[in-house]
Design a protein around this nucleic acid. Sequence first.
DNA 1: CGGGACTTTGAGGTAGATCAAAAAGTGTGG
DNA 2: CCACACTTTTTGATCTACCTCAAAGTCCCG
Lengths: 225, 225
Amino acid sequence: MLALPVEYTPIRARTDFVKLGETIDHACLICDGIVARFEQTRSGTRQVTALHLPGDMADLHSVVLPKTSWALAAMSDVVLGRVPHRELVALSDRFPSLARAFWRDCSVDGAILGVWSVSLGRRAGIARLAHLLCEMRCRYGALGMVVDETFDFDLTQMQLADVLGLTAVHVNRMARELRERGVATIRNKGVTIDDWDGLRAVADFDDAYLHLDHEAAGSVGDVIR
Amino acid sequence: MLALPVEYTPIRARTDFVKLGETIDHACLICDGIVARFEQTRSGTRQVTALHLPGDMADLHSVVLPKTSWALAAMSDVVLGRVPHRELVALSDRFPSLARAFWRDCSVDGAILGVWSVSLGRRAGIARLAHLLCEMRCRYGALGMVVDETFDFDLTQMQLADVLGLTAVHVNRMARELRERGVATIRNKGVTIDDWDGLRAVADFDDAYLHLDHEAAGSVGDVIR
DNA sequence: CGGGACTTTGAGGTAGATCAAAAAGTGTGG
DNA sequence: CCACACTTTTTGATCTACCTCAAAGTCCCG
C-alpha cells in the first residue's frame, strides 16, 4: 500500500538524537531497539515520559507540533526509520482514515502517559517498578517477543530510575524486593515474570489503557512498513 | 463556519460525569468552569492527569478511543457542550486540515501531560505547586481571564493534592511557603501572582510546552463555537 | 589484565505521609 | 439573623519511604 521514502539510520546506545526545542521535519519509526522520550529539569535530572519499542512511531506528534518540547534518547543500539513530515501530511490529507489512525496513535500515547502519571503521583516505588514490568510484558507480548515469560528489556538501573522517578539505588532495592517476593526477576539482558498474577497485584495493573485489542489495524508502524 | 449540534448541559461541582471504562459517543467542550481528567488506583486515591478550562475539549481523544481509560470530574459548577463523535468524524473526513487541528489538540494535551510527569517524578512539592500556578496563569492569561495578576482558580486543597500527587496537608504547607516567600497567594476564589519571575524560578517554568503561540488558529473550542 | 561502567549494600538524613484536633468558612433551615 | 452541621483550612507531632553519600563488589570490553 505505502512505499514511503523511509531513511534508515543506526543509532548508538545512549545517544540523545533529538534535542529539546529543535524543529524537526521527520518522524522516527523505531525498527529495532528501545527509545526513550524524556524531559529534564534545570538541575539536569531526567524524567522519561515514554518508552518506544520496535514498530512504534516515537514522535508522531511532531507532525503537528514540529517544535519539540521533549527529547529522544536511544536506550540501546537502535535502528531508526526517518519518515518526512511532508509525506505523512500528504498521506493524512489524502486518506482521512489514515489521519485518524495517526491521531489515534497519539491518543494511545497520551493514555499510556496518563497511567504513568498515576504511578508517579500515587504509587510506591515497588508498585511503579512492577507496573512498568507489567506494561512491558504486555507490549513485548503483542510484538511476539516474549518467550518463556522472558523478554529482552535491557535498561540500566539508572535508566529505569529516570523512567520511574526514583534513584538508581532505590530501583536496585525494589528490584531485589520483587525478586525476593518471587514475582519477577530483572537480569542483565532480560526480564522474567515469575508470577504474573502476583506481579499484577503488586502493580495494581490493568492493561485496558494499552489498547492492544485494536481490531486488525495494528500499529502505525505496521501501516508504514 | 460550523453550526454543530452542540447540546449544552450544566453540571454540579464535584460530580464525576464521565466514568472509567465507559464507551461514549460524544466529546465534551468546556463552556464554563473547570473539569479534571483523572484516574485512580485500586485503593481509591486519585491522580488528576489534566485540567480543562473554558474553550478546551476535555476528551477529544475519545473520538478515536471511545472506550475511556480515564474519568472526568467537575471541579466547579460547569457548563458542558456535548458534541457527537459522529459529527466530529464527518468533519475530519471532509476537512483534512480540521482533522489535523484535532490531532494537534490531542498532541498539545500530551505535551502538557509530559511536563506534569516531570513535575510528579522529579520536582519537590513546592516546585510542583508553583509550576501548576505558572501554567494556570498562562492558560487563563491566554483566555483573557487574568486581571491584576489575579485569576479565578478555585480548587480545594484536596483537589490540588490530587493534581499534584501530594496530600492536602502538604499542599497547605506549600501554599503557605509560597505566600511567605512572597511569590503567590492562593485565596478562596482566586490566585494572585505576587512575583512572576520569582514564582517561575521556584517552579523551573518555561511556557513553550503550552504551544499558546499558535498562529491565529486558536483552540479547537474556537473552531466549534 | 586493567579500567570504566554498573550493581549492590550500608548508614544516616529529609521530604512528605499519616494521624489527630482545633480553627475558620459555608450553607441550611428555623 | 442566628444556630447547627458540614466542609475546608490550618497547625502539631510522629513516622516512613525514599534520597544522599560512600564504598565495595561485579561485569564487560579493549
